[in-house]
């Protein structure tokens, strides 16, 4: 029986291709650990709570309610959204919350494991995968709610709806890729996490979350430059049964995110020893 030999030295003189392969192998291989960690966190969270899953969607729901209220009372005048406004607003905020959660996920998952990172050598990719599983769980609740709204507000069933999970997966891929690049810096400086939170708060208003893209003007230009616009609009269109508006942009995001995801994963993998050294 030949034993696996590990060699540790200062240079990580592995080739990028081999790093990707190793990283991917660990990502797949850590399914059980990732699932276990996700189940652990979800269970413990709900076991110590009476309201339980309500917390998963209360924030986007409240945001939407505020805007429905503002719109209905005429406090703010919104242009026609092409759909019943409550459904429009709910889909917007729910999709937005899924995107922001996926951006936050890698950092939150890594910070949550700070204690064991500096003690035990386990496949770090498991943290990302477990974050992804938790995200899927939370998103599933939100999607169920969304489907409920679709029927409750009379949009009804249409075939586009079946594309929604796929579109959402692309949004999650985009968010987590971005999050993976941010994580190493966020692990070093707390500022990074705060900046992301505050920044996303602003970003929501230059993304058509609670209102449609204006027909013309400066805001239209900004919004169309914003990749999140594509994700939000495409997701909402398939929910509401409209044809996808930015199909080309969407496919671009898919391809670019897919490629960058692997680079992000390798970057994350390489950064962990440095982060452990500085944090623990």
């Amino acid at each position: 029986m030949s034993l696996e030999t590990r060699i540790y030295r200062k240079e990580n003189n592995l080739k990028f291709g081999r790093l990707i392969k190793a990283s991917f192998k660990d990502l797949i291989g850590s399914h059980f650990l990732a699932k276990q960690l996700a189940v652990r966190d979800i269970r413990s969270q709900y076991r110590q709570s009476y309201l339980g899953i309500i917390w998963a969607f209360i924030t986007p729901l409240m945001t939407a309610l505020v805007w429905v209220f503002l719109n209905n009372t005429g406090t703010v005048q919104l242009t026609d959204t092409g759909a019943p406004y409550p459904v429009f607003a709910f889909t917007g905020t729910l999709i937005w919350s899924i995107i922001t959660e996926s951006i936050h996920t890698p950092l939150t998952a890594t910070k949550g494991a700070k204690g064991i990172l500096s003690k035990i050598n386990f496949p770090k990719e498991a943290l990302i995968l477990s974050g992804f599983y938790k995200l899927l769980f939370n998103s599933a609740i939100k999607v169920a709610l969304l489907v409920f709204f679709v029927f409750a507000f009379g949009v009804g069933f249409h075939w586009y709806l079946l594309l929604f999970p796929l579109v959402l997966l692309v949004a999650i891929l985009f968010g987590m890729t971005l999050g993976l690049f941010i994580t190493p810096f966020g692990m070093l400086y707390n500022d990074v996490g705060k900046i992301i939170s505050v920044g996303l708060g602003f970003l929501m208003y230059i993304t058509p979350v609670v209102y449609a893209i204006p027909k013309a003007g400066f805001m239209k230009t900004i919004m169309e430059l914003n990749p999140l616009t594509t994700l939000v609009v495409t997701s909402r269109n398939v929910v509401l049964g409209h044809p996808p508006a930015y199909l080309f942009n969407f496919l671009m995001i898919l391809v670019v995110s897919f490629l960058l995801f692997f680079i992000a994963l390798v970057f994350y993998r390489m950064s962990i020893p440095i982060l452990v050294e500085r944090n623990g």
Binding site: L3, T5, R6, I7, Y8, N12, G115, S118, K119, E277
Partner: peptide
């Protein structure tokens, strides 16, 4: 394998178990 050396080499064969925590 939690942090990388600044100089020198470590070669470890086989399955590693750590009772650190």
């Amino acid at each position: 394998g939690l942090i990388t050396p600044d100089m020198g080499v470590i070669k470890i064969k086989g399955k590693v178990g750590a009772l650190i925590e």
